[in-house]
Design a protein around this nucleic acid. Structure first.
Length: 291
DNA sequence: AATTTTCCCAACCGCTTCCTA
DNA sequence: GTAGGAAGCGGTTGGGAAAAT
């Protein structure tokens, strides 16, 4: 038994794509559009697996793909986004126009991971230019990986996000939260009733009732350039330009850092985003352990 | 100059989620 | 409500290029 293969493997081309194959695929997609990848090879006359065609299109042939060196700005953004999102390469790529998840993943694995690991503990260095590229050796990397804190993420969609009250904007902004919002206070209250909720610093009492756990399509919101909102920080001061997209951009400097460094009472113990992520992804099934 | 080692990245694999009948 | 197929995603691999010996 075993998993059914996505397509017949026999008689299919594998490995690097030829220019002829690229042309056939690009022409086909230009005419017929994306999608129906499973049927595409047969229709287009390609001896390739549908998944392979999809990947080739998305990572290489698609228009507006940016190729070439990743700028220091992009690099800095990748580091910040990775700090926030973990190995959610597709989400990270969504913030870097023209870059693909595969490219960012590769760039992270070959360039940034080592540098970030090397700089753990060195505070106050936000500029990637200050990060000196080490003479990387595979053996050194392996040693670091084995001794370091390697976090393996599960391939799950990020669909819920906790919004603290101070990040909630005005009434207009609350409209984007949607119908499925649940006050965190309620959730945590239920948690503490139904199970031993392991928290040394946090109780449901010090959760502001206007903090929300919301259903959230991160990708959609981040990709949106249309919705016009003003972001305000916890003091009410305007912190952001006037679009959600830009809020997303500025959030990593203006929201994320104070999020951890200043610390809302609720978030004070929650500086381990993985704990939050696990908790959210589990739909409350996992215990949220706050140190 | 030849060989070996290391690095990089495109492509593959398998799992999860989404969609639809 | 659910089963099955399609699509999306992240981890891993393989091979060519570059660097080191």
């Amino acid at each position: 038994m075993g998993r059914k293969p996505c397509c017949e493997k026999e008689g299919l081309n594998r490995g690097a794509w030829s220019t002829m194959e690229d042309k056939i695929l690009a022409d086909y997609v230009k005419i017929h559009g994306e999608g129906k990848w499973r049927d595409l090879p047969q229709r287009a006359g390609l001896k390739r697996c549908g998944k392979s065609c999809r990947l080739r299109w998305l990572n290489y042939l698609r228009p507006n793909i940016r190729r070439g060196n990743i700028s220091t700005d992009e690099e800095d953004l990748i580091v910040r986004l990775h700090k926030l999102l973990g190995n959610r390469w597709a989400l990270i790529a969504g913030r870097l126009p023209g870059r693909t998840d595969n490219e960012i993943k590769n760039y992270w694995n070959t360039n940034l991971r080592k540098r970030v690991l090397d700089n753990i503990g060195i505070k106050g260095q936000s500029s990637s230019e200050e990060l000196v590229k080490p003479a990387t050796k595979r053996t050194q990397l392996t040693a670091q990986q084995s001794s370091g804190h390697v976090i393996r993420t599960k391939a799950v969609r990020c669909s819920k996000v906790a919004i603290p009250s101070w990040l909630l904007l005005d009434d207009q902004d609350k409209n984007i939260i949607g119908q499925n919002s649940v006050p965190l206070k309620e959730i945590l209250s239920d948690q503490s009733k139904s199970r031993s909720f392991s928290s040394s610093t946090t109780t449901s009492e010090n959760v502001n009732s206007s903090d929300f756990l919301i259903d959230f399509d991160f990708g959609k919101v981040l990709m949106s350039d249309d919705i016009d909102h003003q972001a305000k920080d916890r003091t009410g001061k305007s912190i952001g330009p006037s679009s959600v997209d830009q809020i997303a951009r500025c959030s990593f400097d203006d929201i994320y850092d104070p999020y951890l460094l200043v610390g809302d009472p609720f978030y004070q113990g929650l500086d381990d985003l993985d704990e939050i992520s696990c908790f959210l992804n589990s739909g409350g099934e996992d215990q949220l352990v706050i140190n």
